[in-house]
Amino acid sequence: DELEKRVKKIARKLNLSLDQVEEWLKRNNNDELVEAVKRLKKK
């Protein structure tokens, strides 16, 4: 979905793993995208 695409884009842009992106999003209080990261990690 759109949020998952955004997460992947962030990960690529910042050259981070999904775990690192998740931490980064949590620090930025971006719950919506944190949920998207969790969905991606399950895939």
Rank of each mutant, 00 (worst) to 15 (best):
E23A: 07
K42S: 13
R39S: 07
V34P: 01
R12Q: 12
L33T: 01
K13F: 12
R12M: 12
E32H: 09
L18C: 11
V37N: 03
W24Q: 02
W24M: 11
K38R: 13
K9R: 14
L18N: 01
E2W: 11
E2I: 12
E22Q: 05
R6M: 15
L40A: 04
K13Y: 12
L18H: 01
E32K: 09
R27P: 01
R39H: 04
W24C: 15
L25I: 04
R27L: 15
E23K: 06
K43Y: 09
L40P: 01
R39K: 08
Q20L: 09
L3N: 09
A36M: 06
L40D: 02
V7S: 01
D31C: 15
L33N: 02
N28P: 01
K42C: 14
K9C: 15
I10D: 00
V21R: 00
K9Y: 10
K42W: 02
N28V: 11
D1F: 08
K26M: 09
E32Y: 09
E4F: 04
K42Q: 13
V21W: 01
K13W: 12
I10T: 02
N28C: 15
K8Y: 08
L16H: 03
D19S: 09
V21I: 11
E35G: 04
L33H: 01
W24N: 01
R6E: 14
I10Q: 01
K13V: 13
K8N: 08
K43D: 07
R6V: 14
E4M: 10
R12Y: 06
K42T: 11
N29W: 10
A36R: 02
K43A: 10
Q20W: 06
L14E: 03
A11K: 03
A36T: 05
R27N: 14
R6F: 14
L16Q: 03
L14R: 06
K41R: 12
E22K: 05
L40G: 02
V21S: 00
L14A: 04
Q20T: 04
A11Q: 14
V7Q: 01
E32M: 09
E2P: 10
V37R: 01
L25T: 00
A36V: 09
D31L: 15
D31F: 14
V21T: 05
N29G: 15
E32I: 09
E22T: 04
V34K: 05
R6H: 09
D1W: 06
R6Q: 14
N15K: 10
N29E: 09
R39Y: 00
K26C: 12
V21H: 00
N28Y: 14
L16T: 02
E2T: 09
L16V: 07
E35C: 13
L16R: 02
R39F: 01
K43T: 06
A11H: 03
N15E: 10
L33G: 02
E23I: 06
E22A: 05
L14P: 00
E22N: 04
R12P: 02
L14T: 03
W24V: 06
V7D: 01
V37P: 00
L3I: 07
E2L: 12
K9M: 13
E35V: 04
K26R: 10
K38S: 05
Q20M: 07
K26F: 05
S17I: 08
V34L: 15
N29H: 12
V37T: 06
K8C: 15
D1H: 11
K38L: 02
S17H: 05
V7M: 06
K8V: 15
R6Y: 12
N29L: 10
N29S: 10
K38Y: 00
W24T: 01
Q20E: 15
K8A: 13
D19G: 06
K43M: 10
K5N: 12
R12T: 08
K13L: 14
